[in-house]
Design a protein around this nucleic acid. Sequence first.
RNA 1: GCACCUGUAGCUCAAUUGGACAGAGCUUCUGACUUCGGAUCAGAAGGUUGCAGGUUCGAGUCCUGCCAGGUGCGCCA
Length: 572
Amino acid sequence: MTVVNELSTWMSAAFQQVYPAADLSQVKLDVVPTADEQFGDYQCNAAMGLARLLKMKPRDIAQAVVDGVAKPDCVERLEVAGAGFLNFYLKAEWLAQYVEGLQKDERMGVSSPGVGRTVIMDYSSPNIAKPMHIGHIRSTVIGNAIDRLHRLLGYRVIADNHFGDWGTQFGIMIMGYRNFVNAEALKTSPIEELERVYRESYEQSQKDEAWLNQARTELVKLQAGDPENLALWNKFIELSKLEFDKIYGRLGVRFDLERGESFYNGRLAGVIQGLIDRTIAEESEGALVVRLEEEKLPLSIVRKSDGGFNYAATDLATVLSRVEEFNPESIVYVTDERQQLHFRQVFAICRRMGVTVRLEHVWFGLMRLPEGTFSTRQGNVIKLERLLDEAEARALAIVKETSPEMSPEQQKEVARAVGIGAIKYADLSQNPQSMITFTWEKALALDGNSAPYLQYAYARIASVQDKYRERFPGKDPSAYPIRLTEPVERKLAIRLVRFGDSVAQAAAAYRPNYLADYLYDLAQVYSSFYQTVPFLKAEEGVRESRVRLCALVAKTLRMGLNLLGIETPERI
RNA sequence: GCACCUGUAGCUCAAUUGGACAGAGCUUCUGACUUCGGAUCAGAAGGUUGCAGGUUCGAGUCCUGCCAGGUGCGCCA
């Protein structure tokens, strides 16, 4: 149980006790961390909200609680301040005790609300036969962080990479392959060659009607199971997956399932028939549509007038299939903002079909270049591979300069962790929904609020601990109690205590940046601690207490960064 | 035309979902002991939160109207 939960529970009971007649259900009684440490460690803002309900002054309401109810054990002082805020100041000894407990707790105070619950995560989902570019990194990195957060909270997470492997692009693709492919190029860089072939065939189709018709024919043949086209299609998938796996390997991303859209082909007709039978869908201009006026949404086409199914049909079939097979509590999609309407329509249709699973669309802002949006056709895309290479190269230049004593292999390894970490953190530290303008400078920043700042803090702690063992061989810091005497130590302890809440909050809101914020704040307080008080030169007892605090910060940073998919080398 | 999103310091972004005087980083300026890693720390400067109203104890956050940008909207996924 986290401190917030404990205090919130107490707070509710306290209000209940003092105002038994009031209907408290409509007021938020939660206790939250204070915005500013001058107002204590935690605060409750409920008294202001209750003022109208009780027809009393907020400060009087708060004061009555302070006077009328015994404080919880952990609280030193409970004060009424400002307009009617209730400020909690925790006891130093209790804090120290709690922190001792965190050291023994492998989970660092993170609770397990997800035990026995299943969530399906649908993220990354690149298109077959196209290279991954910077537009794919957000879905992959944000989705993976949300995935990891839920796993730690005890959820059974099924991460599914829902490849785009069944679009109309395959007709054009097959035509291109037959006419333009260069076997040599296909061997050395398969995806780039496939992309080139696609582009050429696409251009041809734009100016050549016969070409386009032939492409359509090839698509129909493929969908009808033509062995030759099927073989080509499988080849595209195989080559693409090899390429994707390289990227996923570098990013530390793993999926439990890799089911492309084609996996659901066999179910499409049945699902659509169900919509017809239940009169959810109707015919209009030859197509089959679902009208969504009640939901105030534009209608959705679920089957084209030529009888073909589109992505709405696929997504519906996917939901039904997932529900049937895994019975999840929720399905979470991580895609860019352009798909908001689409998912709202799909979710609305699901509800009409009686699907009760919780459906969440976690959308993020489109990534664009300073000169505008990028697109495959304009050819101004930045390949993900190149971005990762560049990040590692820049990190390597710095590592060589600052850690010349390391072996070249070690430098490379550190540069990898730092470079990839920097890229991920640049994305995860901001609100997913904000639109981001890509610049090399920002994506690869290595100072200030960045992954290397956190990794640096971690590496310094590792160094402190090595030096401690060196200078005081055989000594166990845990034999000494944790003492919180300096203000900065108390500040640090409060941060440690908040880790569990921070993780829970980030997961519940699907907002990894809450956790990134927390970690950055923790590292800042630690850096200040590191700079202002001596560890190894402090007197016995104080020294051990501080070394123990260092260890706890290290543990928290390691766990927290791991949740963001960022590594923590012992030396950087 | 309709719908959704965004607008916060010179730049890039936060803001515990309605809470206390709006916070960081970058940039600029000042300082850090022959001490545990200076990829650091302490400090300064920088704001009418796009504009105008409204709701209430309290608004960057909610409502209305404008302005600017982005995205989507019957046969691509």
